[in-house]
């Protein structure tokens, strides 16, 4: 039986309302992209001094390069029609200027700053940690869910109880530990602590419960080793759980900030968020440049989100309350 559907008008009102809220909540993100492409220097013939639309008041809500490009394009065509080659060349030049200025900060970012390296570092660390977590935590989750051995509950409870402790508590000792291990200012200082996160063990254990014992039993009957059973039977069955865990791990590592700013010194080892903070702190970065950096950092997560949306939902509801 279905709930009595709302009539059209009400639905429309709700839709409209939600659209307004959604626009408000997406506005900052839009602003990042809009500003990163904003025209930062423009001077037409009738203007006394060049203007920047990046910090103009009132703020420009879309990249001004777009309308101005078309304006010059139209005028260039008209000039061509009228046979005024000089005028046409001027407008063509302006079009080129608009394009190169609009995308200029991205070029700048990769050429003059270490953004390319930071981007690579972020990707590399996120991928290594994600793969590592998936393997390590599914192994641990599997035996904790499916094997009976002495100490199992004790181990599980110890691991899980640390989930309640906020990360800041261990910030300082972890830092000293990383220093003592000689890992300061290396990517290992990020990767190893990230690989120790316990949430995945919990999630995978939850997930492994739903794997029927009969299947494992059957594999054992066929003489498969523990490892083989895990690799060929368990992992494929746990795929949706792995997808959810993988995405959340990737997202967290990609966005992580507090720990990397503490342990990384060398500029070329920075991850994107740390690099962005340095850009903001250095006095010489324009806002357009900052927003271009922000856009570069935001794009991969947005792509991951769009591609794997359903796993996000799955991961959230799996880890949370089940009715």
């Amino acid at each position: 039986m279905k709930k009595k559907p709302l009539d059209r008008l009400n639905k429309l009102i709700i839709f409209g309302l939600l659209t307004v809220f959604a626009v408000v909540s997406l506005l900052p993100l839009y602003w990042v992209f809009s500003t990163s492409l904003q025209l930062s220097s423009y001077q037409s013939q009738d203007m006394e001094r060049p203007v920047s639309y990046v910090d103009s008041n009132p703020p420009k809500m879309y990249p001004m390069g777009i309308p101005l490009y078309f304006k010059h394009w139209g005028e260039a065509r008209e000039a061509a029609k009228a046979g005024d080659t000089e005028e046409e060349a001027y407008h063509r030049d302006m079009m080129d200027h608009i394009v190169s200025n609009s995308f200029g900060s991205f070029k700048n970012l990769f050429k003059k700053h270490d953004v390319g390296k930071w981007f690579f570092n972020s990707i590399y660390i996120a991928v290594v940690v994600t793969i590592g977590i998936l393997l390590i935590d599914s192994m641990a989750g599997y035996v904790l869910a499916k094997k009976k051995f002495p100490g199992r509950n004790l181990i599980f409870w110890i691991i899980i109880s640390t989930m309640m402790i906020p990360g800041q508590v261990t910030l300082v000792p972890l830092f000293i530990m990383v220093g003592n291990l000689g890992l300061m200012d290396t990517h290992w200082a990020l990767i190893l602590p990230d690989l120790s996160m316990v949430f995945g063990v919990f999630l995978m254990r939850q997930f492994m419960y739903s794997i029927p014992d009969e299947l494992l039993e059957a594999a054992r009957m066929d003489g498969a080793s523990e490892w083989r059973t895990f690799w060929t039977v368990v992992l494929p069955l746990a795929r949706p759980g792995l997808a959810a865990l993988g995405i959340f791990t990737f997202m967290n590592v990609w966005n992580s900030f507090l720990w990397p700013i503490i342990v990384l010194n060398t500029a070329e080892l920075y991850t994107l968020p740390v690099g962005l903070k340095t850009l903001q702190d250095a006095n010489l970065a324009s806002f357009k440049l900052l927003m271009s950096g922000a856009a570069v950092a935001a794009i991969p997560m947005i792509i991951v989100f769009i591609l794997f949306q359903r796993y996000f939902v799955k991961g959230l509801t799996l880890g949370g309350v089940k009715e």
Partner: peptide, 13 residues
């Protein structure tokens, strides 16, 4: 803080 286990799903499990 990324490495807080809490931050994974916002910490609340």
């Amino acid at each position: 803080a990324s490495r807080t286990p809490a931050s994974l799903l916002g910490g609340g499990n």
